[in-house]
C-alpha cells in the first residue's frame, strides 16, 4: 500500500463530482431505459440500435452526456469500494481507477461516435 494520497481538496472535489454525476445519471438512466423499452423491436443488437439512432444529433448529445457521467461516476465509486473492501489505498489505487475511467470513456465515446457518423 502506498502512502501517497491525493490532496484533501482533490478528495472533496472527487466526492462532489460523483454526487453531481449521480444527479445527471438519475435522469439519463431513466431516459435510457424508457427508450429501450419503447424502441426495441427485434432484439437488442448494434444494428437495431444504430439503425434507429444514426445521424441523430440529439441522441448523440444525450449519450455523450451519459457516457461522460458514467466515466466520472463509476471510477470514483469503485475507488471507495476497493478501499473499504480490500484496504487498498494510495497512488496505485488512484492510477487504477483513472485507467478504469479512461477505458469507460473510450468504450462509451466510441459507441457515440458510431451514432454520429
Amino acid at each position: 500500500m502506498s502512502d501517497e494520497r491525493l490532496s484533501v481538496r482533490t478528495q472533496v472535489l472527487l466526492w462532489t463530482a460523483q454526487r453531481a454525476s449521480a444527479a445527471v445519471l438519475a435522469i439519463c438512466v431513466v431516459v435510457h431505459l424508457a427508450t429501450i423499452i419503447y424502441a426495441v423491436r427485434n432484439g437488442l443488437s448494434a444494428a437495431e440500435i444504430l439503425g434507429r439512432t444514426r445521424g441523430n444529433a440529439a441522441w448523440a448529445a444525450f449519450y455523450t452526456l451519459f457516457v461522460a457521467a458514467i466515466a466520472v461516476h463509476a471510477p470514483i465509486g469503485l475507488r471507495t469500494i476497493l478501499a473499504e473492501t480490500f484496504s487498498w489505498r494510495g497512488r496505485a489505487l488512484d492510477i487504477t481507477v483513472l485507467a478504469v475511467a479512461l477505458t469507460l470513456a473510450m468504450w462509451g465515446f466510441r459507441a457515440v461516435y458510431a451514432v454520429l457518423i
Partner: peptide
C-alpha cells in the same frame, strides 16, 4: 474533509 473525514 476527504477520505478519512465527513466524505467517507
Amino acid at each position: 474533509a476527504g477520505d478519512a473525514g465527513c466524505h467517507a
